[in-house]
Design a protein around this nucleic acid. Structure first.
Length: 705
RNA sequence: GCGCCCGUAGCUCAGCUGGAUAGAGCGACUGACUACGAAUCAGUAGGCCGGGAGUUCGAAUCUCUCCGGGCGCACCA
């Protein structure tokens, strides 16, 4: 049922702590040669799974079940024959203790537990000194996430985007990739235009007055993005509030403003620049609270003014991806076939996507195609100017500019890109990929991933709680979509503040001996842990119906639960007066001695390390070691299918298995010195696994809880 | 009309290229703090995996179909 098939696809770049992966590969190779010798069959992908329960062993294959038909033999018979072949050559399979037939014809493999522990512990040691692995020739990836319109405060939907994106970046880096993190800024769109209309016409402010207001807000320590949140909602209403004639005028104002901003070099554009930059800065601050950082902020204004589109347009025309439509509703436009469209030559394709309008202006998708050519380094002669914009403790975040600074890093030219964008935009994303493919950039199209995810919505109860008026028919729905335009939603900073307030209250109660700064750090770490885990525990295409009760929960399957397990382990080492490093070194030495002795005591079970890991009463300990050995496998799978939730699940299961172990076995009072070392080593391995995996999720481990 | 996503326990969700007795968390009910701090642990109850058909030795998983819910399908941005 919950047997997991191990992916063979993507293992190449994982070079550390791959105990489980190695064993799996070895078994698959060996099985293949057995099948060849016995039945003259050459099967390339032999399924090797992790069984649903430990009593079935640590690895299993249903290959005998699959062969039953072609070999015209009962699956159990085949399994028996294969097992005999494997058993007779056990010496060639290091790390395995034996094989057996089970169920309808499964072949179950049992591992040499002591050897597994020895290898795992040894793999933990060097990581302590060098936690980050670097490949000699790392693949260059580009992840784009966050990309909030700079006209209002970030809300919970944006948090899901940024947390998913940031976590994926950490995962890629853990696997050895070189990753550039980009946050695309649409500073010339209608959303920014609307808030500019708000300042200029709803509030009737001049450029100087807007500037003064921004200074004033800054001086008072108030959030500009919050101010814009309200103004944006008011402006959206204002378009519909007046008489029909007035509303028509207001709409005209809206488009005139939009065009002035796109054009640049005027006062309206200057207001837009002031506001969008101030709001953008706030977004970066909000995300930094969650440990989210960026390398580069490409802006729409530069893509426009540096004329990326012109270069792309020529190539699109020349390669026949775009054609000029002379009939139908798209008459006078340059259009592109949609993915999967089957239209005979010369026939009118009414469904084609217009890329250049009949008035000669380019659509959003067109600009996006040009931008993505740049991302892959396929836009000859065009690049952004680069300026420093935001300083992080250990690096700069750059922003696009017309001229820019002479000395700057290079962005773009990636070999793989990931766009973290919600699933509602899958159509335009598919259009861009289609264009790349049409231009013959097949490899690039294949390495273009729309990292899509479902939205965060509010439960009706939550909406009412926040004081919004909810329509009668919406009350019975499972969730209501948030809307920046209506000012309907939970602002990111409000949620973070609320979480910190809740964790602070608990920390004040528990950590009376610590000073205020320490307590503050702990409360912040737990709050962020809770938030990040909450956003990551759901798989990407499940809609999150947001509710404060769930988001503010610190018990059960939550970030704090995982953090707590790690903190408990730290407490053990603190009380025990030793460190994980020392214990692991001690254990490695012990394991080595025992391994030497083992050859003399061949076949003698139940002694030494093997004994600590054998038997019903130690099954939970063995489960913990196994889980730890599985980490790189889980990372591999999570990257292959772009699903950070797998890692969140893994961290939780690890924490759960540790807590279970913690209650059953009391470490510090253990009298047998060797067993105590072994139990401490178990805790050390669990701690390093937890800290590492939580780190990939962007969750810090507090000193105390 | 076309396309994509979802439907699994009272609630919120896992279940990873088909595989062994369908799993968690929350909520409910029982129990466990003078041992490494209970933000924890142990246990009980709770499921026609939306319905139907097909493929298969084997289906929550693949195919088809129907039902229910959501989101997209502009020369808007």
């Amino acid at each position: 049922m919950c047997a997991a098939r191990i992916s063979l696809v993507n293992q190449g770049f994982l070079r550390f702590s791959r105990v489980y992966l190695e064993l799996q590969r070895q078994l698959a190779v060996h099985l293949r040669s057995v099948l060849k010798a016995k039945y003259s069959l050459d099967i390339e992908n032999i399924p090797v799974e992790i069984p649903p329960e430990l009593k079935f062993g640590e690895l299993a294959t249903p290959v005998a079940l699959q062969l039953a038909r072609s070999l015209r033999k009962a699956p159990k018979m085949i399994a028996q024959e294969i097992v005999e072949a494997l058993q007779s050559d056990l010496a060639a399979l290091t790390g395995f203790a034996g094989f057996e037939v089970a169920g309808a014809g499964y072949i179950n493999a049992r591992l040499d537990r002591a050897a597994f522990a020895r290898t795992t512990a040894a793999a933990e040691l060097p990581k302590l000194a060098h936690p980050f692995f670097k490949l000699a020739n790392p693949p260059h990836s580009l992840v784009e996430h966050t990309s909030i319109n700079p006209n209002k405060a970030a809300h919970i939907g944006h948090l899901r985007n940024a947390i998913l994106g940031d976590t994926f970046v950490r995962m890629l880096r853990a696997a050895g990739s070189q990753v550039d993190v980009q946050n695309y800024i649409d500073n010339t769109g209608v959303q920014v235009a609307d808030v500019v209309v708000g300042f200029l016409y709803v509030e009737g402010k001049s450029l100087a007055e807007v500037r003064a207001l921004l200074d004033d807000l800054k001086a008072r320590g108030e959030r500009v993005d919050y101010y814009c949140w309200d103004l944006y909602a008011r402006t959206s209403q204002w378009y519909e509030q007046g008489s029909e004639a007035e509303n028509a005028e207001r709409k005209k104002l809206r488009y005139a403003t939009l065009h002035a901003i796109e054009e640049g070099g005027n006062e309206t554009a200057e207001v837009a620049e002031l506001i969008s930059t101030a709001v953008l800065r706030r977004h970066l601050e909000t995300m930094l609270r969650l440990g989210i950082e960026y390398d580069f902020l490409p802006r729409e204004s530069e893509i426009l003014h540096l004329k990326f589109w012109e270069v792309a347009f020529e190539e699109l025309k020349q390669k026949g991806v775009l054609y000029f439509e002379t009939e139908g509703k798209n008459k006078g436009c340059w259009v592109m076939r949609r993915p999967g469209a089957e239209i005979a030559d010369g026939e009118l394709d009414e469904d084609a996507k217009a890329i250049v309008r009949s008035n000669g202006t380019v659509t959003y998708v067109g600009k996006d195609i040009a931008y993505h050519l740049w991302k892959f380094g396929l836009l000859p002669g065009r690049d952004f100017g680069y300026e420093k914009f935001f300083a992080y403790p250990d690096h700069e975040c750059w922003i696009s500019a017309m001229q820019g600074e002479a000395d700057h890093p290079h962005f773009g030219g990636a070999s793989a890109i990931y766009n973290v964008i919600d699933s509602r935009q899958s159509d335009p994303q598919a259009n861009v990929i289609q264009a790349l493919r049409g231009m013959g950039y097949t490899a690039q199209a294949d390495h273009y991933t729309h990292f899509s995810y479902e939205m965060v919505a509010l439960t009706p109860r939550c909406a009412v709680e926040l004081g919004y008026t909810v329509a009668e028919e919406d009350l019975s729905r499972p969730y209501i979509e948030v809307s920046g335009r209506k000012g309907f939603g939970v602002k990111a900073d409000d949620l973070i503040d609320k979480l910190i307030a809740a964790t602070s209250e608990e920390v004040e109660k528990r950590q009376t001996s610590r000073d205020a700064t320490e307590r503050e750090t702990i409360a912040r770490q737990i709050a962020i842990g809770a938030l990040r885990y909450f956003m990551l525990k759901f798989t990407r295409n499940s809609v999150i119906a947001f509710d404060f009760k769930d988001a503010l929960s610190f018990e059960g399957e939550t970030g704090p639960y995982c953090q707590y397990a790690a903190v408990r382990i730290r407490n053990i080492f603190r009380k025990g007066g030793t460190t994980p490093e020392n214990v692991l070194a001690e254990f490695a030495e012990l394991a080595r001695q025992r391994a030497d002795a083992h050859s003399e005591l061949a076949g003698q079970q139940g002694s030494g390390i093997a004994g600590f890991l054998a038997g019903e009463e130690n099954e939970d300990i063995w489960a913990l070691w196994l889980r730890a050995g599985r980490r790189s496998l889980v990372l591999d799978q999570a990257i292959t299918v772009s699903e950070p939730a797998y890692l969140a699940k893994h961290a939780f299961q690890l924490a759960q298995e540790f807590n279970n172990f913690y209650h059953k076995h009391h470490i510090l009072t253990e009298e047998d010195a060797e067993r105590k070392t072994f139990l401490l080593a178990t805790a050390a391995v669990a701690l390093h696994e937890l800290v590492t995996v939580l780190g990939w999720l962007g969750i810090e481990t507090p000193e105390a809880m």
